[in-house]
Amino acid sequence: MSIENLQNLENAPVILQANRLVKTYTQSSGRFGFGSAQIKALDDVSLSLKAGSTLAVVGESGSGKSTLARCLLQLHPFDSGEVLFEGKDLAKLDANSLRSMRKNLQMVFQDPFASLNPRMRVGEIVGEGLLIHGLGSASEKKNRAAEQKNKVQQMLERVGLSAGDALKYPHQFSGGQRQRIGIARALVLQPKVVVCDEPVSALDVSVQAQILLLLKELQHEMQLSYIFISHDLRVVRHIADEMVVMHKGKIVEQGKVVDIYNAPQQAYTQQLLSAIPGRKAA
């Protein structure tokens, strides 16, 4: 668990908050798609993420968890509701302020094969955010470039790659290494909140364990807050402090991970927990 004891969790300030989010998709339906149907991907969803902690969003496919991630980061527009980061309503910011706010809110994606541009070198991929946000303290442009390059190399080393990897292309790396690149890209901007959308579900268990431990270490070092989207309840048990359970666009249960695993209140949560493979035999 990322927060040492639950007392700390109680007292931690809220860093990201969603209030009554609603998002509806219109989908063509019927034979040949002439009809249309409204699908509520998010139906009155509220949650809050405490600073330095990990909040897991759990649910089956189609439950709305990835839509939620995208709405939190303002990557998708939503119909109503608000997302507050450190108390500021993100939807009310103009394009410029939102862009500069984005360095605080980063994302790690599920598929390490699809989420890295195959034509860019790893150094460019990881450094692009620094370039866009013009980060670096040096006043002269040339010095700043050197500083950014330095930062990229340090970050690569921190996630378990080497500084020399900056010159390679994504296809030269394994799935686990690519996910490390994705993490380096998100963290090089020193964000406060990182949304991880199924970051380990495409990986083998041995690689999964490495990445989970890396995420935990980095959280500790950099005081990160994670929204951790997952369908794997064993992984959630390991990484998260609090969780919300989503079903058909609604949050059906939320609370501390320990409490929910020990005594799930809702029938749907009970069903999910009892379906964890290997529980019966244990």
């Binding site: 041995s206 364990a209 989970l212 048990r237 695993y261 964890i276 290997g278 244990a282």
Partner: peptide, 15 residues
């Protein structure tokens, strides 16, 4: 040792 358990008792240990 890499497999997370549903009880969260196990300390994960990469290979």
């Amino acid at each position: 040792a890499c497999v997370p358990d549903a009880e969260g008792k196990k300390q994960l240990k990469p290979i």
